[in-house]
Design a protein around this nucleic acid. Structure first.
Lengths: 197, 197
DNA sequence: CAGAACATACCGACTGGTTGGTATGTTGTC
DNA sequence: GACAACATACCAACCAGTCGGTATGTTCTG
């Protein structure tokens, strides 16, 4: 049922997804729906939490953590995100990024659940960024690890919007490449030679 | 009427904005609405076009074009975008970015109008980026001016999503700062000293 | 210039279908 | 038989869109 919600909301948005749609897609009746969720909004929050849990598990078990160097882990994370851009647009875009656009002003519960999902995911990057900063003796001027972690999420969310507008993943991949280039440049101490690309 | 549409859709999204809402906000009757627009979807397309026109005029007359150096114009554009992050979230976020999320799969007309708005705006940056590349004798490796222009729009759109999730503009400003830093690093030839910041 | 014929802009009650939600069964299980 | 997990039937509110009608031009014709 939550899977159906994720699928439909990613395709049509939250407001345009009706409870009847949801029930039909999940193969349950309306009675069952309202047995489990007190309202459609509650389903929205539950879907956001479910999204946090499933994507959290996906990223926790992803191979990019294996790299010894923390910066390599961050760059491998981006490569992993890039590899996920496959299939139809609605299959790789972000549920909570979509929902928060519609609900940010009118449904605080859903908005907060979406924020928790995005911010929580960003936090999983902070330790690696922090370690990369410390490991290279960098002294960031005007930025820090939490801020850079959030910026990566902003780039990804924006990449999804462009992909939706253009109907293809290529433009999103290009933005991720720019983000990778940025991080490489950031962590290139002034005197060092460029990374091999 | 189009102003009311922009305001309401930015607040609630396209699907959640009803024609009656629109009429009440614009002070017109339903008869008048359907006299001017054959359908709600047509209003959506018209609103996207109106958005292209009004934002186009805003940016065309903005002061950032005055700089002599093309790279300075690009950086001043970003400073201008940063300055626009004032007031309520729904007052500085992007209409077409919001609409395309909901309509990309089901309403091709609106999606294309949104794409035209974003892509058209990105194109206004291309000449300056191109001139900055040429003026510095840069030989971009793996990127070009149109791609970087689109990336700026991705960052801005993503910044808006984070601002909506967190309910404040600060996180969006931070992402624009990262983008500015990226562009500064990109245009810093390997041997040159860093820009004053 | 008078007046018929037509066009445009608008009104608001109405409609058929849809919406989120409820009230009341029925079924399976401990 | 008690209680959770459903199913069915239903409702009032709401939705986009329609339709008959009006008021105000505009154009054409003699």
């Amino acid at each position: 049922m939550l899977d159906a919600a994720v699928r439909l909301v990613r395709q049509k948005g939250f407001a345009a997804t009706t409870v009847d749609d949801l029930c039909a897609a999940a193969g349950v009746t309306k009675g069952a729906f309202f047995h489990h969720f007190p309202s459609k909004d509650a389903l929205g929050e539950a879907a956001a939490d479910y999204w946090s849990a499933t994507t959290g598990a996906l990223f926790a078990s992803a191979p990019y953590h294996a790299h010894a160097d923390p910066l390599d882990r961050v760059l491998a994370y981006l490569a992993f995100r890039r590899d996920l851009l496959a299939g139809d647009v609605s299959e790789f875009t972000c549920l909570v990024g979509t929902m928060v656009q519609e609900t940010h002003a009118s449904k605080p519960g859903i908005r907060d659940a979406c924020d928790a999902s995005i911010s929580g995911h960003a936090e999983t990057l902070e330790a690696d960024i922090e370690a990369a900063i410390a490991g290279r003796g960098l002294e960031p001027d005007g930025w820090d690890a939490p801020g850079l972690a959030l910026h990566t999420q902003a780039v990804l969310q924006g990449a999804f919007i462009l992909a939706k507008a253009k109907g293809n993943a290529a433009v999103a991949a290009a933005s991720i490449d720019h983000l990778r280039r940025y991080i490489e440049l950031l962590f290139q101490s002034p005197g060092r030679t460029a990374h091999h690309e």
